[in-house]
């Protein structure tokens, strides 16, 4: 049985690198990424599971890191944050299609859209909506984000 009773030294596999980090069992993955590992792309928005600004990939699946304890992923899980997704097509098309304004929600959208493109490159509008409505944007009205995803799908063909 795995047991974490106090501050513990754990190994987290983030963006392909194994990082040693001392954490409390009560630390969320979001806080550990930002405050202990200096990976600040995932954002604290609501910290309540509603907004998606904190989205990261765990074993290729998008997950809201504000609701995940860091101790849960101390088992060789592959964590990918936006810092680990460089020069992707979806980043390019977000720029081309004005997929953001203030940019606070953008890392969460990019990570989620990146996972969608990988798992379902041919996602139709219904499936794309189902995935992307996990994230909230207060600025754009979503059209630029939808267009960015569509353009990325075309470019990836």
């Amino acid at each position: 049985m795995k047991a974490y009773e106090n501050i513990s030294l754990v190994k987290l596999k983030v963006n392909g690198e194994t990082r040693d980090v001392a954490i409390r069992p009560a630390d969320t993955l979001l806080r550990v990424l930002r405050e202990k590992l200096g990976l600040t792309a995932a954002k604290p928005g609501c910290e309540n599971g509603d907004c998606g600004a904190c989205t990261v990939l765990i074993n290729e699946k998008p997950v809201k890191s504000c609701m995940k304890l860091a101790v849960e992923v101390d088992a060789g899980a592959e964590i990918i944050t936006l810092e680990g997704i460089k020069n992707s097509i979806i980043q390019e098309t977000f720029l081309e299609e004005d997929g953001f304004q203030c940019g606070y929600c953008t890392p969460g959208f990019l990570v989620n859209a990146y996972a969608l493109l990988k798992e379902h490159p041919d996602a139709d509008d219904k499936l794309a909506k189902e995935w992307l409505e996990s994230n909230i944007c207060r600025c754009t009205g979503y059209e630029g984000i939808r267009n960015a995803l569509k353009l990325a799908q075309e470019k990836l063909k």
Partner: peptide, 21 residues
């Protein structure tokens, strides 16, 4: 941030979980 501490256990089977509780 969660403003208090707790312990976290991950039992490997049903018996361990029940006994731990």
């Amino acid at each position: 941030m969660i403003p208090f501490n707790f312990k976290y256990y991950r039992p490997a089977n049903i018996e361990e979980a029940v006994e731990l509780y």
